[in-house]
Simulated assay, not measured.
Amino acid sequence: MTHQTATESSERGSDTTRQTFAAVGSIAGGVVLLTVGILQFLEGISAVAKDKILVVGPQYTYQFDVTAWGWIHIVLGVLIAVTGISLMAGLAWARITALILVALSIIANFLWLPYNPWWAVLVIALDVFVIWAISTWDPDRF
């Protein structure tokens, strides 16, 4: 018979709560990844079509042609969406791939700031949440 102190019980309960929240966050992260992937894909199509919603400033250090940015977003969007579906399916490779793709998404959206700042900041914030959820979730402890 094991004797459990109140502190150990409290720590275990807190850890279980944290893991439950992280597991739900990881599934939500998969949904967010899928959503962000689809939206980045659509944004890429908008850029390739030279849509009027994009603003191109005269001087920018990391300036590419809008069409090039469009293709970057299309490819990244498809990869992120597929990884989001895989993450929701519980595939082991999807966690590491998601972390890598989300890091690339943060970089791409930071460089995309002058073209569509509100969207870029929103995606960066969602990507940070996904990184937290995926990296703190331990499926063996849930």
Rank of each mutant, 00 (worst) to 15 (best):
W93P: 03
L79E: 04
T83C: 15
T97D: 07
T97P: 05
T83L: 05
T61S: 12
S86I: 00
T61G: 13
V78F: 08
I72N: 04
A81Q: 03
V66A: 15
L79W: 08
T83A: 12
M88R: 04
L79H: 02
R95N: 10
L104C: 10
I72R: 01
M88H: 07
L79R: 02
I96Q: 01
T67H: 10
G77T: 06
G84R: 06
I85D: 00
W93K: 08
H73G: 01
L79K: 02
Y60I: 12
L99M: 15
L99T: 10
V75G: 13
A92V: 15
I85C: 03
M88G: 15
V82M: 08
V102A: 01
D65G: 14
H73I: 05
M88C: 14
I74L: 06
H73E: 05
V66T: 13
V66S: 11
W93I: 05
A94R: 02
V82H: 04
A68S: 10
S86F: 09
T61K: 12
G77F: 06
S86Y: 09
H73N: 11
G90R: 13
V102N: 01
V66Y: 12
V75W: 10
A92C: 04
F64Y: 15
T61C: 05
I100W: 00
Q63T: 04
Y60V: 13
I72Y: 02
A94S: 11
G70F: 01
G90V: 14
T67L: 09
V102W: 03
V66D: 12
L99R: 11
S86K: 06
I72W: 00
T83G: 08
D65C: 11
L91P: 00
L76E: 12
G84C: 02
T97R: 04
I72A: 10
A92H: 07
T97G: 05
V78M: 08
D65F: 09
G70W: 00
W69V: 07
W93S: 01
A103Q: 00
